[in-house]
Write a protein that binds this DNA or RNA. Structure first.
Lengths: 191, 191, 191, 191
DNA sequence: GATGAATGAGCGTTCATTCAT
DNA sequence: CATGAATGAACGCTCATTCAT
């Protein structure tokens, strides 16, 4: 029985291989084989390797954003909303270590830097849930009065570092540890 | 007139190219050309590319550790010592953005992961200034009672994220901003 | 019009180049060019240079063994069988001087030594026609009672030396000369 | 204390390395190191690697010829003289396996073929002890009436094959075995 | 659409040889 | 004379991409 959605198969294969072996440990031929298609076929769905990688990242980010929004209630207190987002992010990454590995590699490559640049220099993206949360927090004098990128750094720097340590086996996370750490992040950003 | 110290030239060329273009954007031939030597010459000084990269990292880490220790006074209060270290680290990375880019790449590669693993699994290294500071802080109930890797994540995660943003031009740091952010890091790790 | 069987072309080119110029006088690029393919193509058919060489040897040995068996009659007297095999071997090598040069090089390289070691230390290979002939000859007290490798040396040492001389043009063989020499080999091994 | 004879040191180092590791397992730098001289120094004594190898071979052949002549008595019967030479050759090679390994490699390389060609096509070399022995044997109708190269093949082909097997450990020679084999060689060449 | 054989530029590395000291 | 650092062409091999089928 054939999978009809080759595009999906290719992305899945690429995701897993790149997560596990890095960008240059994942040649197109290997991705093709794992996806059950021929090497040439990939080029019907993606202009080249770079495009495949960018599409992949876009999809994963979309998934994450979607998962953050479920259960997010605008009317809750800011602290609670922050903890909701941070812990939903952690949960997502814990549940999808492969996605995490991929994203990490992505943002540590020329691709990621360019993407980030485009985003920050472009217009504010209305649906950026974090940005509006933080801007609100600053305005209400709940959060420290720092440029947004610094608040991001304080909030997510520790989370990503923690996830890295977990994925590589340097620590074993449990709910208590995670909760404590996220509250520590809050301590970092709050006034 | 030629520089007599080719080893240094090679390391400098490798450092800059790798910082700017990543490990595989910096082929040996390109490093050689930038260093003003022939490709074969590199192999008189380094066993292979991996050894060159490891040596480079070792040197940079040495530099950083040295710069952290200057002016570090064991008898000062813990908070002050933490802020000293964090701000010395920031200053170093700010003054040497190329070193920062290299180290980032290094720790996001198999090399770095293995190094980190060895360090965390190996015996406590007496001269690890951060580790002893944090252990002391936990014992004295000044810092949160979390596993060391998580304290590291809370303290350095934001710093590295901030540096990244700065190096890529997403923010422009000044002393005030930096100081505020480092104090926010302290808020994150302290009880 | 292209030859459809590239694998064959590659083996042929490698055979001829190695026969003429030795293993390191035959770089992959040169083999590729002679075979009318690109360098990379070789690696679709052979894992690496060593595999190509081993495959080549295996094929040639197979050819030789096949040609020895045609017309070989187990019921003939031992002397006649010996002369049949020896002369069939000579004829083959005479007709395929390039094969001879290749095999010579092969057995004078680490590849060949290892192969020989495996064979001598491994279990007797049922289809080894020479071994069984010689063992029978010893048992029936027709051949000298010497270890097998020495009988091999006495029987094939001269044949290979003769072929070498012929291939390099130091002598010109004809049927009479060959017959006489093979009978002299028999004189060497018989009681 | 320095060895004054660098030329000798270089040849010895080259001999041992090439015997053990083959021509391309013995780079000039390695030879130099083993000889205790610098790489450049080799080129004061030898024009290039090829010249070094040729000189080495010439020297070894000289040694062998000399050792064959000691105790060789022209007035002894032909058979005895043959066995003397053959066994002296065997003894030499057994005592100097490193020389044997070198010579084998040499004659299986372009160098050796050219040398041999020069020799056979050049004028008869008066002091060639084997050649005169065999020519005498043919004239006196003691040896088979075959072209010289074939008599050489019959006489020395087995000896070299035997030595090869011994050096690689496929057989363990002792005096009895050797004597039997050399007599078998005589059986091969005699009428 | 899909295939997968073919390409060839590019990689890390080696080593015989040269030459300034 | 001797050194050994430097060279650079050449090697075996990889892989993103193309294109005839």
């Amino acid at each position: 029985m054939k999978t009809p959605d080759k595009r999906h198969d290719i992305m899945k294969a690429a995701l897993e291989l790149i997560a596990e072996r890095g960008f240059h440990g994942a040649p197109m031929a290997m991705i093709a084989e794992k996806a059950g298609v021929s090497a040439g076929t990939i080029y019907r769905y993606f202009e080249n390797k770079e495009a495949l990688i960018n599409d992949l990242n876009r999809e994963l980010e979309g998934n994450i954003m979607k998962s953050l929004q479920t259960g997010y209630l605008r009317e809750k207190p800011l602290r609670e909303r922050f903890l909701h987002l941070a812990s939903a992010l952690c949960k997502y990454l814990l549940d999808h270590p492969v996605h995490f590995r991929f994203i990490e590699q992505y943002y540590n490559s020329p691709y990621g830097v360019n993407l980030r640049r485009e985003r920050l220099l472009g217009k504010p993206n209305g649906d950026d849930i974090f940005r509006s949360l933080f801007e609100e927090g600053i305005k209400q004098q709940i959060l420290k009065d720092l440029p947004l990128p610094l608040l991001f750094a304080l909030a997510f720097g520790p989370i990503l570092a923690m996830m890295r340590d977990h994925v590589f086996g340097f620590i074993v996370l449990n709910d208590t540890l995670m909760k404590k750490t996220l509250e520590a992040c809050w301590d970092g950003v709050k006034r």
